[in-house]
Design a protein around this nucleic acid. Structure first.
Lengths: 138, 138
DNA sequence: AATTTACCTTTAAATAGTTATAAATTAAAT
DNA sequence: ATTTAATTTATAACTATTTAAAGGTAAATT
């Protein structure tokens, strides 16, 4: 799980400026269990930062990804979701309502999958598609 | 692997018209081992069907997906790739050159992954990211 | 504390993939 | 051959994301 101060220190030590926007984005992502889109973050952050822009959100999120703090999920064809964690795990995506849930995977499974390729795998995504219980009962 | 006639018969039996464009798209996808994008298909088909449009390609591909003949891959953030097969397997994506390769998975592995969720999983994608040997040596 | 500078955010516009619409075309039923 | 309903096409619209340029700001320097 994220430690805000650690992430901010790391940003600073890499020569990045600690702007209010960056702090706000890191704080807003910290401890989340959901997988917000750029738009969700934009709406939420706009309350504290009325002038914040998508460009800032996308660039900060990209920075956090490069630093290994978050993952970009392409499970949803329509838009990118951000997952503020790096530990490998799978995701279940409901094809009707778009609900997106984390699924644990043990380290063995992760390693086995990474080793399926003869090339060196840097990261891994496992996406399960189906209907969540709510959508299935209608 | 695909059988063109079987797919065309199935289309017809479901009440879909066998248009020249649909036949051309099915024929062009048949037996492929790569994972063309809409644009690739468009360019290729344009030789035989100079008036073919993206709308036709997208709608036909969607039809084939609904009928269970092909999969839509979201491994590449930039664009959708189509995989003319339904057997579950993993994909390796080179983050530099975009090369996309099939990786075999045995049925056990597939089942184990599908069962990671307590919900009923209809389909599955496993994406491995890294650098292909060529890109790694530069 | 003021100045400077390089980086950052913002605004606005551009881009690219995909989808919607409406008119024209055509497969196939009559 | 005619009819009809589905399909294709051309065009425009749409949406998520990225880019470019102008102004703003963190933090290093004086």
């Amino acid at each position: 799980m994220w430690n805000v101060d650690e992430i901010l220190d790391k940003l600073k030590s890499k020569g990045y400026k600690l702007t209010g926007q960056r702090k706000a984005i890191v704080e807003r992502l910290c401890g989340r269990e959901d997988h917000p889109t750029a738009e969700q973050l934009y709406k939420e952050l706009k309350k504290d930062y009325p002038t914040i822009s998508f460009a800032t959100i996308y660039s900060t999120v990209q920075l956090l990804e490069e630093m290994g703090y978050l993952q970009t999920l392409t499970v949803d064809e329509k838009k990118t979701h951000f997952d503020p964690t790096w530990a490998a795990h799978a995701h279940f995506f409901c094809q009707k309502c778009g609900r997106l849930e984390d699924i644990e995977m043990n380290q063995e499974e992760v390693e086995r999958l990474k080793n399926l390729s003869k090339y060196r795998t840097q990261s891994l995504q496992v996406y399960l598609y189906g209907l969540c219980p709510e959508c299935d009962n209608r």
